[in-house]
Simulated scan of single mutants.
Amino acid sequence: MAAAETLGVMGALKFINNLEDRDVVVQIALQFYLEDRLAQALTQFKEGLLTLGLLDEVMCNPRAFQRAFTQPPLPLTATDLANLFTPTLSPVGSNRRRLENRTIAHWRDWLLEVEEGNMDHVQVEDVLVLCSGASRVPLSGFPEPPMLDFFLVTDSNSLPLANTCSVTLRLPLHSNYADFSRAMQLAVACSGVFGCA
């Protein structure tokens, strides 16, 4: 009686006299949950793919779309994030280029520490959120290639700056790793309140 309403919706509300009747009810319930209940959602999904002109491509090339539809995303690593960004560098041989190279080394070392769990409450995904607003890299990539820019530290500005629209991270040119690490941790910690008053 407790399941009468649910069984009625499934069309499986039957009096059970023996094990064969029970198997019929189970079969009807399985069909409802595995086919009937999902039919409308699958129809809408197919219509959406048709609207975008993708349904034929998916049907012709199922392996190409398998990762997008069936596999969970791979966890983001420090190497993935470091390789995602292209640095905008000063001319070779300049003093500023030397500072930029040092900052890139700080950036990569800091990402490795984040990945290893050495930074309190900071995950690699949190760093991507700071830079892009997204916790995962989209399957098709970002519309614009993510960039690393650099700026000289001043008394009023020593924290990294991010532009989530263009996926640009501006790193401060700190002379030592400890200052760089503190600035990055603070920036990531504050990025969770972006847009909140």
Rank of each mutant, 00 (worst) to 15 (best):
P138F: 00
F45I: 02
E116F: 11
D149S: 05
E57S: 00
E115R: 09
N157R: 15
Q123D: 06
A68F: 01
V24W: 09
T6L: 14
P146Y: 08
Q66N: 13
A187D: 07
P72C: 07
C196F: 13
N157Q: 15
E47P: 01
N17F: 08
L171P: 03
G133Q: 10
Q27E: 15
W107G: 01
P72H: 07
V127F: 08
P72A: 09
T86F: 09
R22Y: 09
G141I: 00
A41Y: 05
D23W: 02
L112H: 11
D21H: 12
S175G: 10
H106V: 11
L99V: 05
L171W: 02
E20G: 06
G141C: 05
L173A: 04
L55I: 00
M147I: 11
V114M: 07
T88N: 09
S156R: 14
S191D: 05
N176A: 10
R37Q: 12
T77P: 13
A39L: 04
L81K: 05
L42C: 07
C60V: 06
T103D: 08
N176S: 12
P143I: 11
E113T: 03
N101C: 07
F180P: 04
L139K: 00
T43C: 06
K14P: 07
N118C: 08
A134E: 15
I28H: 02
F151C: 11
S132I: 06
A197N: 05
D126S: 13
L30R: 10
M59N: 04
D56A: 12
G48I: 13
A29P: 07
L50N: 15
E100H: 12
G11H: 15
N176Y: 09
P75S: 14
D179M: 09
C131S: 15
P91D: 09
V124A: 03
L52P: 01
L99T: 11
P143H: 13
F150K: 00
F151V: 05
K14A: 14
A64G: 03
L76R: 04
P145A: 12
L49V: 04
C60Q: 13
S90W: 04
S158C: 08
V124D: 01
I28D: 09
L13G: 02
C165T: 01
T6R: 11
T51M: 03
K14F: 14
E35S: 12
D126I: 02
L111G: 00
A2K: 05
Q71F: 01
N61S: 06
A41Q: 11
D23L: 10
G48F: 13
A4V: 09
V9T: 14
L112Y: 06
N176V: 12
G53L: 03
N163D: 14
L171D: 01
G141V: 04
E35T: 10
L81W: 00
F142Y: 13
T6N: 08
A178C: 10
P72T: 07
